[in-house]
Amino acid sequence: MEDFAFHRPGSVAEAQETLRGTEDSKFMAGGQSLIPLMKLDMAAPGAVVSLTGIDELRGIEQQDGSLVIGAGMTHSEVAESDDVRNAISALAGLAGSIGDPQVRNRGTLGGSVAHADPAADYPAALVALGATVITDRREIAAEDFFQGMFETPLETDEVITSVRFPVPDSAGYSKFPNPASKYAIAGVMVARNGADVKVAVTGAGTGVFRATAFEEALAGDFSAGALDGASVSADGLVSDTDASAEYRAHLVGVMARRAVEACG
């Protein structure tokens, strides 16, 4: 790991000022992806600006049928929050399934969303629930936010402050974890609002995507049986030594059925 300066400002404004003032610096919001990359010398920022000391990024509140979760909330805090459990229990369950306890105690919602790892869990929740990413300067719909592998419209000095999740009628998440890394090989979030059903898939592709054929099938008949034999095309899915594209395509179908079964 290369030497780097470390800053832990107390406000978003201060964090941005620090970032702008130091060449080659990077925000860190928990460090569960950035630190491993730095240890392997795959990232070597000159300065790291930690966002974990900023009160305005914290908190969970209900707002007009939505749940607004501060970007600085750790996965453990989201998993254990009664507000989250009561409003969107699948989201609490998803947060509680990320990595391991150490990762969940350090990693944050904002950090995961900003990193946009194609095998991370949160992107599936944001897209299926129709969430909105709120930054210091704008609001971005989840589907516009995740643009592919580690790709987002965030500007260098832009900070995610919170994510607004509309509370659905019901939602369920099911994932098949990589046995080594515990990232999703295929993770599927299903959310239903009346006749509107969204199915978002993470892990299987190069970024989160919606399984529209599944959505159509479920819109007419919201049951696991409606997806019997359904699978997504393997074309374009990730194929590596962890899992072939064909197996991932199959797992997306299985996880989708299980996610529907998990819907309350």
Partner: peptide
């Protein structure tokens, strides 16, 4: 769980705990 994998060019694919499953 465990499998050490080299690719055809002799690169060690399972070179970390990200994909070598203990």
């Amino acid at each position: 769980l465990e499998s050490c994998i080299y690719d055809d060019s002799g690169q060690l694919i399972t070179g970390s705990y990200m994909n070598y499953t203990m």
